[in-house]
Nucleic acid binder design. Sequence first.
DNA 1: ACGAGCGCCTGTCGGC
DNA 2: TGCCGACAGGCGCTCG
Length: 272
Amino acid sequence: MPELPEVETIRLSFLRDGPHGKPLPGRIITHAQVLWERTLEEPDVDTFTRRIQGQAIQGIERRGKFLIFRLSQDVLLVHLRMSGDLIVEPDSAPMAKHHRLLLEFQDGQRLAFNDTRKFGRVWLVDDPERVVGSLGPEPLDPAFTAGDLYRGLQNHRRQLKPLLMDQSFLAGLGNIYTDEALHGSRLHPLLLSNEVTQDETVNLHDAIRNTLLKGIQQNGASIDWVYRGGGFQEYFKVYGRTGQLCFECGTPIERILVGQRATHFCPNCQRL
DNA sequence: ACGAGCGCCTGTCGGC
DNA sequence: TGCCGACAGGCGCTCG
């Protein structure tokens, strides 16, 4: 499910006072429970529960779609994949059906990793670079320029959409935001990357950033049964709008398969 | 280097 | 009602 804006929304919520009470930084982990072993990528369950016990959360960062919890000694990384969510609740709350991993705090609350489809992963490591080291640039980093994007596109001869979704090329875009950004820049998802012009790249760079910023501003998107309060779905221009009319030109939005993923675009605005 | 196909999982929805 | 396939915000692997 979540792409960069949804992950960022979760991160920001944990840094503020909220329904969960005080921010997560400052809390001390007293106990961990792994309910579905494959959720824990590394280390093994025994090492994980022993090692994380007593560590405090000192900060929360994000890299692409990864949440990065800085602990007193180690670093905890979480990837929500398709259906993962992080919930702060009382230790006494009834165990929800799809809870996969729990971190209990000294203050009587716990952080629950809930993940229906079990694709999500958690790491506890001393060096996060081992996990996120191969990610591409951070699209909202001011240091990431249209020139960088242009050089990247020229380095490959790949269909634009799968390349933009390749996390080692650019970190954070998923199926929704890629379709929206391509529409925003009027580029066809199957256009070959090294055929994108410099001017088009400037538009694409703008569209990627604006789409992600709009998503964050709306607290992400809430679709299907995964609802966490975001409103970006109200601003979709192509995603999930198959057969509905393009807001720009009135042409029906088409849905095709690209790299095994549903892809939505306007055949008039986005021509090959 | 690139794309297709598939596995990993559970749940929902639409058609028959 | 039941069954069955298609589909879902991700990613890693193998195979041509």
